[in-house]
Nucleic acid binder design. Structure first.
Lengths: 220, 220
DNA sequence: AAACTATTCAACATATTTATTGAATAGTTT
DNA sequence: AAACTATTCAATAAATATGTTGAATAGTTT
């Protein structure tokens, strides 16, 4: 094998793995799987895809060895093969948000049109935690909270927030978070809370980002 | 715009940028541009592509806003738009090397069949630098060395190494580096040096990786 | 202004990717 | 063993990506 042949094969393999990521639905699936494992059913529902279609995209990811599966009862659960997969997605996401003005604008416009408020980054949250009264609120579905969440976070799924709001302390600031920067649950939560007189802000990133940084997490 | 529409557009844009990376030639171009700026001519030559073909791939990268251009005389020089581009490539590269057994095997086999020696990572090099007599050798073409190199490195392009070997100290260890983990110049250098009685090892990563870590660099 | 040069464009053929549909499969539960 | 269920497969049509060729362009140098 000569030099050129070697390079062609290496870059060919790397392009193959990159191609397996290069599809909107598959990126959304990767982001979802950052929360933990999901059945094909659940993935199809969360991403608004026909089941056969979701299954095909999952095959692509499986062939690229980016996801693993395990069976439980009738269901097959998919999960990210390891943290490098999420790291690559995160790098692409950050590249996109920083490079493509359209994306930043989309996110900003969408949030401001419906809600109208600021957000705080993980770094900002850490500072707030050191110096003030902060309640961390996880508004993802309970199953995802149970698979892993920010240490000391309170779980109130977005669907139940209106009824259960009283469980939250009235004084101090509430930081709501969900799956990631493109997840809207936290935005909705902040809107509801602010309207009810709480001081609430959304966390820019999601649980997987927090976890990847080696910050304290809990499971149960 | 509803939630689904918002997501479709965001993930659509992110997939667009990912697709622009998802091609073997374009990945190779990104890696090359990690060394600095190059003309279409030079890029085509380095990647063994017909010029028109290289130009087309560069258009794709430019449309995705991953590269910028500037004109100097008759030539148009392309460069990475910013460090996030290299970061994304690095994340994909590491995902590939770790996930796809084929790649690791390819690299290992190729090196061992032609050469037969160990390599050291950036972390390892830092340790060696603290505790011993180490000469860092940059075997890339002089133009690339001048655009930026590891602090205190000596420049001897691979083509000139055999004649200029005497410029290197006989005692202590020599660490040779080049463009990146898939660049073969450093392998060739180590082979030549070891044969001539030097104690030489290759650096696993390349100059851009070193630079990205914020480690000391020089230009001139 | 003419000649030159590096780069880009346009047009085509081929290969790959994607969504959709309905049928097949593999495993589980009854 | 039969019925059931979640998932996968297969086949098709449409859309997109890629390499190749030769011509066009935009800028520079003479």
């Amino acid at each position: 094998m000569n030099k050129r042949e070697f390079k062609d094969r290496v870059y060919g393999e790397l392009a193959r793995i990159t191609k397996s990521l290069a599809n909107p639905h598959r990126l959304e699936i990767i982001e979802l799987l950052g929360q933990g494992d999901f059945s094909v059913d659940q993935i199809a529902e969360q991403t608004n895809l026909p089941i056969a279609n979701a299954s095909q995209h999952l095959q692509v990811l499986k062939n690229a060895q980016l996801v693993d599966i395990s069976r439980q009862g009738n269901f097959i659960y998919y999960r990210l093969a390891n943290s490098n997969v999420f790291k690559a997605w995160k790098a692409l996401r950050e590249l996109g948000v920083e490079r493509i003005v359209t994306i930043e604008k989309l996110v900003k416009d969408f949030r401001q049109s419906k809600f109208k408020f600021e957000s705080v980054t993980i770094e900002g949250l850490i500072q707030k935690l050191e110096s003030g009264k902060v309640t961390i609120l996880d508004v993802r579905p309970t199953t995802e909270f149970n698979k892993g969440h920010i240490a000391n976070a309170i779980s109130i799924p977005i669907d139940e927030l209106k009824e259960r709001m009283s469980e939250l302390p009235k004084r101090g600031e509430i930081i709501a978070y969900c799956r990631g920067p493109f997840c809207v649950y936290a935005d909705e939560a902040v809107a509801v809370l602010n309207k009810a007189g709480y001081k609430a802000t959304r966390l820019e990133e999601g649980f997987p980002d927090w976890s990847l940084m080696g910050l304290p997490i809990e499971m149960n």
